[in-house]
């Protein structure tokens, strides 16, 4: 019991200590990332405002993340409906292949996509990063939406149909509102995954780097390191905020739908 406790504490320290170091050095006056701390400053945050390439990288990332999240969620809805609402031969195998990118090394996805794109004579760019990110986000979206659709009593949809709605209007009036918390969760999680994905973006981004790729290139300049720390701090705070919002949405939705809270994705 005691060893288990120690283990748990060590594990959490190992997991979160580096993240706590980020803000520590982001507010430190020295450009050298080392203890002891030399003083408090917000100059690295104001410095961020002047780095224009970083701004375009940020906007590029936002564009890619929003598009990938929307696409992955739409595919996720189709996938989750196919796996929970219908039964067809080969269903298990097909779902398995769709979920495979969850465990597939991203480097493999990245390299194989690059090969395909080059073989087709196309050039890489934001669109190819979007394709890659949609590919890796879709399984997450399906996993989240699967539980949302599985928790939905199929007789609710039948009841709406029985009361005179069409398949499409049943989806709009009953299915969609009831799985909305799942959809919001899927969007936010996919967005977060795409925002900080590096390998696929590194291989497939064209002339405009995404934020993680840009940050990586900045690491070569020690002078800029504290600014990177500042940016990292902002990103961590935003991520926590986003995930919290996703979870609040999911819980509120589950409560409104009168479902028992089953823990969900988070």
């Amino acid at each position: 019991m005691k060893t288990l406790k120690t283990y748990a504490i060590l594990y959490l320290v190992f997991l979160y200590a580096p993240i706590f170091l980020l803000p520590l050095f982001a507010f430190n006056t020295s450009t050298i990332i080392a203890f002891p701390l030399t003083g408090f400053t917000t100059e690295w945050f104001t410095a961020l405002l002047d780095i224009t390439e970083m701004h375009s990288a940020l906007f590029n990332s936002l564009k890619i993340a929003v598009t990938s999240a929307v696409l992955a969620t739409i595919f996720g809805i189709f996938g989750a409906m196919a796996s929970t609402r219908y039964h067809f031969p080969g269903q298990k195998g097909i779902m398995g292949f769709i979920m495979l990118p969850l465990v597939l090394p991203e480097i493999i996805v990245a390299v194989s996509l690059l090969v395909v794109i080059l073989k087709l004579g196309l050039s890489t760019g934001s669109w190819s990063v979007i394709a890659g990110h949609t590919l890796i986000c879709t399984p997450f979206a399906i996993a989240i939406l699967n539980s949302a659709f599985a928790a939905l009593d199929p007789s609710l949809e039948e009841a709406a149909y029985d009361l005179g709605e069409t398949r499409a209007s049943t989806f709009r009036r009953v299915t969609l509102p009831l799985v909305m918390p799942g959809i919001v969760s899927a969007l936010l999680i996919s967005f977060t995954i795409s925002m900080d994905e590096f390998i696929i973006a590194f291989f497939l981004t064209g002339a405009d780097p995404t934020l993680p790729v840009y940050l990586f290139s900045m690491l070569r300049f020690p002078k800029l390191l504290p600014a990177v720390m500042a940016l990292g701090t902002i990103l961590v705070v935003l991520s926590i905020l986003l995930i919290t919002i996703a979870e609040i949405f999911r819980r509120r939705g589950a409560k409104r739908a009168g479902l028992k809270d089953t823990g969900g994705f988070l």
């Binding site: 009593d153 007789s155 039948e158 709406a160 009953v174 409104r256």
Partner: peptide, 12 residues
Amino acid sequence: NMVFQSYAIFPH
């Protein structure tokens, strides 16, 4: 029209 076994009341 049908009254379903689970009643299928729209919870939202």
